[in-house]
Amino acid sequence: MNLIVVLWQSALIISFLSFFFGLFTKSKTSLLISFFTSLPIAYYFFGANNAFKLIALFPIITLLIIYLFYRHEKRRVES
């Protein structure tokens, strides 16, 4: 049981660290790492029956930010 908790907490830490690093450096790779490491956490909280269910939206927000970075980069190259 303790190993599962350690894995879950490490995924949470890696997810947040890579998310903030990806935001500050505009790195799509770091944001993708954040997306994949946040999926188990989002899946766990998706079954909640209260406001914690909103945590399940974190991977969707990460994908939206990746898409916005992609569009901004594409628009900058075309100009």
Results as ranks from 00 to 15, higher is better:
Ser15Glu: 10
Ser15Gln: 05
Phe16Cys: 03
Phe16Trp: 14
Leu17Asp: 01
Leu17Gly: 03
Phe19Asn: 02
Phe20Cys: 12
Phe20Arg: 04
Phe21Asn: 06
Phe21Ile: 09
Phe21Ala: 06
Gly22His: 08
Gly22Asn: 07
Leu23Phe: 11
Leu23His: 07
Leu23Met: 10
Phe24Thr: 04
Phe24Leu: 07
Thr25Arg: 05
Lys26Met: 00
Lys26Thr: 07
Ser27Ala: 01
Thr29Arg: 12
Thr29Ala: 11
Thr29Ile: 10
Leu31Gln: 06
Leu31His: 02
Leu31Glu: 05
Leu32Lys: 07
Ser34Glu: 10
Phe35Ala: 10
Ser38Tyr: 13
Ser38Gln: 06
Leu39Thr: 04
Leu39Arg: 01
Leu39Ala: 02
Leu39Ser: 08
Leu39Cys: 03
Pro40Tyr: 09
Pro40Cys: 06
Pro40Val: 04
Pro40Asp: 02
Ile41Asp: 08
Ile41Ala: 12
Ile41Tyr: 14
Ile41Glu: 11
Tyr43Asp: 11
Tyr44Glu: 13
Tyr44Ser: 09
Tyr44Gly: 05
Phe45Asp: 01
Phe45Ala: 03
Phe46Glu: 14
Asn49Trp: 02
Asn49Val: 11
Asn49Phe: 08
Asn50Pro: 08
Ala51Lys: 06
Ala51Val: 05
Lys53Leu: 14
Lys53Val: 12
Ile55Leu: 04
Ala56Met: 01
Leu57His: 02
Phe58Val: 14
Pro59Gln: 00
Ile60Phe: 09
Ile60Val: 15
Ile60Arg: 04
Thr62Met: 09
Thr62His: 07
Thr62Asn: 08
Leu63Val: 14
Leu64Met: 13
Tyr67Pro: 07
Tyr67Phe: 15
Leu68Thr: 11
Leu68Gln: 15
Phe69Cys: 06
Phe69Gln: 08
Tyr70Leu: 05
Tyr70Arg: 00
Tyr70Asn: 05
Arg71Gly: 13
Arg71Phe: 15
Arg71Thr: 11
His72Gly: 14
His72Pro: 09
Glu73Leu: 11
Glu73His: 11
Lys74Ser: 00
Lys74Met: 05
Lys74Ile: 00
Lys74Pro: 03
Arg75His: 15
Arg76Pro: 00
Arg76His: 11
